[in-house]
Design a protein around this nucleic acid. Sequence first.
DNA 1: TTGACGCAGCCAGATTCCCG
DNA 2: CGGGAATCTGGCTGCGTCAA
Length: 207
Amino acid sequence: MPYFPHPGGPGNGGPPPGSRAKPKRLKAHTVTSRSYSIPMVPRDRKGRPLLPLNVGIMTVISLGEVCMREHFHTERYIFPVGYEVTRRYLSTVDPNAEVVYRCKILDGGDGPKFQITSDDLPEKTIVAGTATGAWSVIVRCANHIRNRQHSNSVSGPDFFGLGQNTIKHLIQELPGADRLRDYVWQNFVEGGPLGGRHAAVIPALPE
DNA sequence: TTGACGCAGCCAGATTCCCG
DNA sequence: CGGGAATCTGGCTGCGTCAA
């Protein structure tokens, strides 16, 4: 998650020394359009991204298609029908294992359906109306078999990769994305100055 | 070679929303 | 109105890059 401290955050006075009481946070309900630098994305001759594509720990299998209907986008995220990624996470069967989860967004008629299938339980498919709902089932179960008592709080869109700037950028490029009413358009600069682990996005090796 | 730096991934908790 | 679900923010940690 790119962290951009907002005005009024830490460093802007902050709590008095010795005070550990956190100030009440107000929900940032407005999304502002701004520019982000993202790694260069490998593309074919027509300019389409080469899939599958490794983005961080995730692999984008398909970007799907932008659906103009309501509920298929918010001001922060677009939920393309047919979008598919894989990612590694804790197994819900073996406490010592990690498995690959296949995340898909399907057309549920009146809204998107978020489907997750794990490699160790391919017959058990989790489907929910929200990304958070689907992933919270996994996280709760993974924590349960490990006897971990932490909350099942999880950012679903984050786990689906929809919060990744690179993936956001690719989804924004899909036909129709520029005509979504509620979505707040972000400006991405490909090949911008980036350090760290994921300075380059590489095509995933075919299985 | 190594330490500083920057970023992604993940988690905890706060806030908001929604339904009974 | 209350409780649970959904969503978002802030911070910690680990790892890769780069310069000294």
